[in-house]
Amino acid sequence: MKYLVLSAVIASSPLIAQAAGGHGPAGCGLGTEVIFKQANEWHEHVLAATTNSTSGNQTFGMTSGTLGCESANGPLADANLFIQNNMEQLAADTATGQGESLSALAEIIGVSTVDKAHFEAQLQANFDRLFETAQTESSNVYQTLVDLMRQDAILAKYAS
């Protein structure tokens, strides 16, 4: 599980990939295809994703899950993985209500240009709910985000 921690992981030397091997290639997150063949619930996706991609071991763009595969998992599952891998930057962007990572999240979810400002403002207004403590897990952030969107008249259509 990913917590909201200031980067305690030090990247190894830049010429070294953290591709330590042992994590075979898979599409849309290793879990959805290999571990949990019938993953339907969001938390199964979370489990599936976190078993594989904790330290940047995706060696061939097959396990990132942020992109593509929309038909299989829906954009929200991709959002979940994106949140997991960008917790710090997302917390910082949410606090200011803008930023590159927050825009990327909006794009993954498929928020239209018209609704983007509202999406950003809603997240900012609910910062304390989304990022309760420093120990908040990415899966909780994701679930709070889904709940929040479902309760919002404008954003509900993206979280069905």
Partner: peptide, 15 residues
């Protein structure tokens, strides 16, 4: 290797 660009940005810009 092929990985999302955000991963490289997190690595270079922040770490």
């Amino acid at each position: 290797s092929v990985m999302p660009y955000y991963q490289k940005v997190n690595e270079y810009s922040f770490l």
